[in-house]
């Protein structure tokens, strides 16, 4: 039943020649660094040309704001207010740089089995989004991933962060993982989505 409806909507969308104003995907960008030489993310805003036929909206929504703040970072009271008043809600569309996308992917392969989906934490490992918000620096982020962290280094009793320095699926991607978690901590990207990404940046030979 739903499929039929969706298909119908899709046909209508096609025949009307896209109701949603859309822009083509921007070009690749270089991996970014902030003024302190820490890795950071790049976002290009704009509605993409791939349309979800069931909602007639572009597929590259990267954040929902409630009264100007990321929905997963506001209080329950604020959320209720936003549920009641649609004018407080803003949907943002855009693309992340390829490095940040790679960080998202590596995170959800290697880190999320303990640190939870979307850097939100689990019953036994802290939320890295919160850790960054509370001031975890890139240098510390890097050191803990490379060397691990046990009770002796200040982890909660019974919790152990393994050392990933020798893991070729993790060690080369720490900068990208940091870019991803930073974007989550800054409220730039929402939960539960595959990041819409800019094309891969190729270094000039």
């Amino acid at each position: 039943m739903n499929i039929n409806k969706n298909f119908l909507a899709f046909v209508i969308t096609l025949s009307l020649g896209f109701q949603v104003h859309s822009v083509p995907r921007p070009d690749a960008v270089e991996p970014a660094w902030d003024e302190n030489d820490n890795p950071t993310y790049v976002i290009k805003y704009g509605k993409g040309d791939r349309i979800d036929p069931s909602t007639n909206k572009p597929l590259n929504m990267i954040q929902i704001l409630c009264d100007g703040k990321a929905v997963d970072q506001v209080s329950e009271e604020k959320l209720d207010a936003c549920r009641d008043d649609a004018s407080l809600v803003e949907e943002q569309y855009g693309w992340m740089d390829f490095s940040t996308y790679k960080g998202w992917r590596a995170y959800h392969a290697e880190c999320h089995v303990c640190h939870g989906p979307d850097a939100m934490g689990s019953t036994y490992a802290p939320s890295l989004m919160v850790s960054l918000q509370q001031g975890l620096s890139f240098d510390d982020f890097y050191a803990v991933i490379m060397n691990g962290r046990g009770e002796a280094e200040g982890a909660v009793a019974g919790n152990v962060m393994p050392a990933f320095g020798a893991n070729t699926n993790v060690a080369p991607h720490v900068e990208d993982m940091y870019r991803y978690v930073k974007a989550r901590a800054d409220g730039k990207i929402r939960r539960g989505v595959r990041l819409p990404k800019l094309p891969k940046f190729k270094e000039a030979e």
Binding site: I64, C66, V71, D72, L79, C82, R83, V89, G116, P117, D118, M120, G121, S122, T123, S127, R190, R191, G192
Partner: peptide, 11 residues
Amino acid sequence: AAGLTDPTAGL
């Protein structure tokens, strides 16, 4: 622990 998805997706 933190909910599987954004509990507010689509608010």
